[in-house]
């Protein structure tokens, strides 16, 4: 079971890279779209690009936090064997 978990985690965290990129792209596109609609170039582009970066950072924080939370109970008897 412990081996299978490592395999899930690998796939789970491998999705992080694409999610970070996607967040920046979505933020940028949304900013450009709003700027063209409202004619406020380039301010909303910059603002939403920053939001995109923040969303990417938040994805990392969320993944790290969930990783830490998942690791904590494993100090118990079940997974001790492969910790050492």
């Amino acid at each position: 079971m412990a081996k299978a978990r490592g395999w899930y985690d690998l796939l789970k965290y491998s999705s992080l890279g694409l999610e970070m990129g996607a967040a920046v792209v979505i933020g940028l596109l949304f900013g450009v779209f709003l700027d063209r609609k409202l004619g406020t170039e380039p301010w909303l582009t910059l603002l939403f690009l920053a939001f995109g970066f923040a969303a990417a950072a938040k994805a990392v924080v969320r993944a790290v936090r969930s990783g830490i939370l998942e690791d904590e109970p494993s100090d118990g008897d079940e997974l001790n064997g492969d910790r050492q």
Partner: peptide
């Protein structure tokens, strides 16, 4: 709120593009 919203749209993009 905008950060979370962008994050949720990024999920659509990352799932489909991958």
């Amino acid at each position: 709120f905008p950060i979370e919203l962008i994050g949720h749209f990024a999920r659509v993009l990352s799932l489909s593009v991958r």
